[in-house]
Every structure is written in C-alpha cells, then in structure tokens.
Design a protein around this nucleic acid. Structure first.
Lengths: 196, 196
DNA sequence: GTCTATACGAAGATAGAC
DNA sequence: GTCTATCTTCGTATAGAC
C-alpha cells in the first residue's frame, strides 16, 4: 500500500477514535485494531502520537472547510446557509448524544492537558465562527456579526453537551427549533443583544 | 491524622485535579504531590481510583446542594434566584476560561470513557436542572419549567465551552447579559419557545 | 512499507514494615 | 494510619528482520 494511503487510513481511524474515546484514552493498540496495521508501523508514518493528533486536526480543518464551502454553494441566501449549520445538530444527533461535539470535546480535553495542539484545535471553532460571522454580515448585521456567530456557536455547544449528558433527542429538536426561530427573528435593524 | 480527615483531604485534592487536568490524566502521583501523602496510603482510604472518583462526585453533589440551598435562602423571588445561577459564570470566569465547566467537562470525559460513573456524574446536571425548573415553576411557567431550565443550562454550558476555547472574558459578560435579558423577558403568559 | 520483538517509563495496585 | 518497596499492566517508542 502506498505510504500516503496508509497514512490517510491511520489518520481517519484516529479521527474516529479520538472523537469516540478521547485523545489520551485512545491507545496505539486501538488504532492498530481499527486499521488492521501493527503498532510499530505507525512510527514509519508519524514520529509520535502528538503528530497523529496534528494530522487529525488538519484533517478536521480540511473537512470543515469543505462542509462550509458546501453550505455556501448549496444556498443563495445567508439565512438558508446558517440553517445548514443549525441542521447539523439534527443530522449528527445520534453521535452527538453519545460523544458530544467533536470540536468542543477535543478543545476541552486538550485545554486540560495543557497540550501544545490546544490552540490549533481552537481553530476548528474559528472556521465556523468566521464563516457564520460572514453570513450574518451578509444578512445586514455586519456590526454585531461576530457576536451573533459566537452566540449561535455557544448554543450549538450547549446543546451538544447536554444532549450527551442526558441522551435526550427531544431536547435537541426543541432547541434547534428555538435556534431557527431566533434566526428568523433577526433583522438588519434589530440591535444587540440577540434576544431583545 | 484521623482517617476521615485524610480521606477528605484526598477527595478535595482529587476534586481540584480532576477539574484542572481531567480524571484520566490525573495520576496518583499528582494527588500525592498535592496532598503531601504517599501513593500507597491512598489504598488505605480507597480500594481503587474509581472509588476516589465516586467520592469526588459525591462531594460535588453535596456542594451543589449547598449552593442551591444558599441561592434559595438568599433571595425571595425566583428571578433573583435564577440570576444567582447566571452570575456563577461571572464569579467563576477565571477558572471557566482555563478549564471549562467542572460538570460539563467531567460528564463529557466519562461519557467517552464509557465509565461506570458516567450516569452518576449526570446527576450533577440534574440538581441544577430540577432546581431551575422549580424556580421557573414559581415564576408561573410550570408548563414549560423543565424546558426553560434545560435552555438556561444549555446556554451556560455553551458559554463555558467557548469561553475556554477562546479565553474570552468579554464573550462571557456579553452572553451573561443576554441571558439576564432573556430571563427578564419571560412572563407567565409567554409561550414556548423562549425567544418568541 | 510493514512486521515482530523489545526497551522503557508511567501508573494503578499490593505487601509488609513501622 | 502512613510509609517504602515492589509487582504488574499498559502504552509509547525503538530496533531490526523481512
């Protein structure tokens, strides 16, 4: 198998496992079992476990960029695009109820570990943040676009955390509906904070 | 030193470390360093690390009960009491920006570990949930009290997660202000969802 | 490139002295 | 009750055969 393909295979398995079990709790033996490769082989492709984490973050950054580009292309109006973001909570609800949000939980774990990749993981949030802010700007809310983006990100994170803690799908649906209504209620003229 | 006092000492050190570093990442050596005790001594007080975790959850449950009882006693009207909950984000902002919410991050870690104490950790959320729901009921919102409680919990969790990821105090203050306004806007007659 | 075998250290847990 | 010493397991990482 070509080196690049094997490497990709490892990174994708690690991506899944880091999400489901966490970074520290995932052992090379787990990745070996998932890929069918031997532990020793990993060191041909990566110098250390941290390097796999780095590759996983790079993979996620790239996938998020593609996701955002897709939402951008799929709809012409900003509200529709933002709705794609909100709909993600429904689309991924099964996994969210089991493992929370892959971005939020990774950032939380790395922050506690005081891990060197911590700031890089936060960039995963930044991608969503800036994309959402861009859409809110197009919506005529340039002045508070970033605050609105952070507000929506905040709600999605809160939903993911509680949905996982309580394994509650009805809660997700209810809050997604509330987010949609909040989005509808936004108008170019409306001032901050969002709820007024 | 009396057994009970030493035990308490260990549990309190573990409580701090589990918050700052996470459960798995905290080694007995860390607790030993924090308490000044030897590693071997822990096994006189606890059969295993999981038993320390259990004791930490018990401690947190008790502290939250006291906190909630305090908020109850400190104010006569429900809105004021709920404000105490919201104010917690400001009061604990320094630690939240470093380590997130102690309840949310513990639940997230244990869920990924598929740890036996996972459901017990969720009870930490349940305490807040039921207390908040009680206050919303007193506010005349008995019909959707639990949904309102979950909504507020959700926002606090989202704020904690993003505040930690971006180390952003201004964001906390802004969202706390928005939560306060949302709370003000609630009236006995207003229907669900919260924002309408 | 991928494997097996192994070194090395960290961490949980145990035994027994004091 | 608390300690030191030690066992054991596990996980990262390395060495070297194929």
């Amino acid at each position: 198998m070509a080196a690049a393909a094997t490497r990709q295979h490892i990174v994708e398995a690690a991506d899944r496992l880091f999400y489901e079990r966490g970074f520290e709790a995932t052992a090379f033996a787990d990745i070996a079992a998932a890929t069918g490769l031997s532990r020793g082989n990993f060191y041909y492709h990566f110098k250390a476990k941290d390097e796999i984490l780095d590759a996983v973050i790079t993979l996620r950054l790239e996938r998020i960029r593609l996701l955002l580009a897709g939402w951008l292309a799929a709809a012409d109006i900003p509200v529709e695009r933002i709705r794609s973001f909100i709909a993600m909570l429904i689309g991924n609800r099964a996994e969210i109820m089991l493992y929370g949000c892959p971005v939020g939980t990774l950032c939380a774990e790395l922050a506690k570990l005081d891990h060197i990749a911590s700031s890089r993981a936060s960039e995963l949030f930044t991608l969503f943040r800036e994309w959402l802010a861009g859409q809110f700007s197009l919506l005529g809310r340039a002045a508070d676009a970033d605050a609105l983006a952070m507000h929506l990100l905040m709600r999605s994170q809160g939903v993911a955390t509680l949905a996982a803690a309580f394994r509650d799908e009805a809660f997700i649906r209810r809050e997604v509906e509330a987010m949609s209504l909040w989005l509808e209620s936004l108008s170019p003229a409306a001032p901050l904070p969002p709820e007024t």
